[in-house]
Write a protein that binds this DNA or RNA. Structure first.
Lengths: 204, 204
DNA sequence: CCTATTTTGTACCAATTGGTACAGTATTAT
DNA sequence: ATAATACTGTACCAATTGGTACAAAATAGG
């Protein structure tokens, strides 16, 4: 029994007309915009550009499996890069501050769609609790990245606060969770910016 | 054209078998648990205990109108009392602190269902934007109550901070929004309590 | 008792839901 | 060429969706 690590090897059979990564990116867009439960199978198929046959072959777990993989995709595309930056940059505290400050702008990277995982946590109803747990874990992952940034910040003498890196990370993930909701109820960007600035005083 | 303010006056016609306030309370429960879109008409009918005929007679706008009225019900039942306490109590700052501290406990009044309005803001998909706006307005109402508490707190000399009441209120509503999400990703009550305590240091 | 008025329950609706079955097609290995 | 393999598209499914139509039922006033 061989395990094939090389993707490009040609297998027998009709070739796929789609690329899985692209498909996931498109699925992410739909889920982000409509939410898990409101994204219909047809919405997703149309966005991905494949028929039902291909879809249920590729994602035997249906919508749920697709969402799981889409969450992983978001982690891979956003968190990993962020973590790398946190570990390598000169000023991880500055990095985190800029991250939050950029959220307040009209051209925020996350738009007004909120956090992929926070949304899932609030949107997904009871019985699909597996997805919720995954979403929670991914948020905890973001929290650990914040913690890492704070740890490095302290080590580099960039933080005056007496609070522990873990406590600061907890504060920051809560700021993240809150801001993604507050943005939806308040569109005075000046006010939002002041809010972020006030919060960021804890990591001075 | 007379307007009748007296509820008990007997009108001609078959009497209702349900009470509108009770009906709304039951609807609130369902919406809170399942979310707006996931609460099916049948769920609601069953919870309210009336048939479709009565339902669509009482709420001609269907599910949407029911949700609007249920939001108003939540405001009436929760916010108004809170505002009264803010205006009348000896220590509005203490009141707000206790409000937040109580959220961290295992027996939190809001359970793990989050904020009725924050949920709506995150759960309701694009096209029903009227409901979203209403939800946002209700959150802003809560913010003004916080502001009132902070204003009184300052006037009473209970606050040392230089921050304006409005700024503090903005901070607090964001804490509220965040905590209702963070609670879903973290169930270490000690950690949650520490998080609240740390945040409440801004209103000392 | 009769009529006007209002509420109630049931039957029904088209549209949409997530998902399956399967015949057909495109490719590689032999 | 042919067999084995893997992907694709369509047709189809039962269940559920929010909502309507309407006849029956229960009351008040006359």
């Amino acid at each position: 029994m061989y395990i094939c690590f090389i993707k490009e090897i040609k297998m027998a059979g009709r070739p796929k007309i789609y690329d899985e990564s692209e498909a996931l990116d498109n699925a992410v867009k739909v889920f982000w915009e409509k939410g898990y439960e409101n994204a219909s199978a047809n919405d997703l198929l149309k966005a991905i550009g494949i028929g039902k046959g291909s879809f249920y072959l590729a994602f035997k777990g249906g919508k749920q499996e697709l969402f799981e993989k889409s969450m992983q995709r978001v982690v891979d595309q956003n968190f990993k890069e962020f973590r790398k930056a946190v570990v390598n940059c000169d000023d991880p505290v500055r990095l985190v501050k800029d991250f939050f400050l950029s959220l307040a702008g009209a051209d925020s990277p996350i738009g007004n769609q909120g956090c992929y995982f926070g949304n899932a946590l609030v949107q997904i109803s009871g019985h699909e609790s597996g997805l919720k747990m995954m979403a929670a874990e991914n948020l905890q992952l973001l929290e650990t990245i914040f913690a890492e940034a704070m740890r490095r910040g302290k080590k580099l003498g960039l933080l005056q606060t007496e609070q522990s890196p873990e406590m600061l990370a907890s504060y920051l993930i809560n700021l993240w969770n809150g801001f993604n909701v507050t943005k939806r109820m308040e569109n005075d960007h000046g006010k939002l910016l002041d809010l972020i600035k006030m919060n960021l005083r804890v990591i001075e």
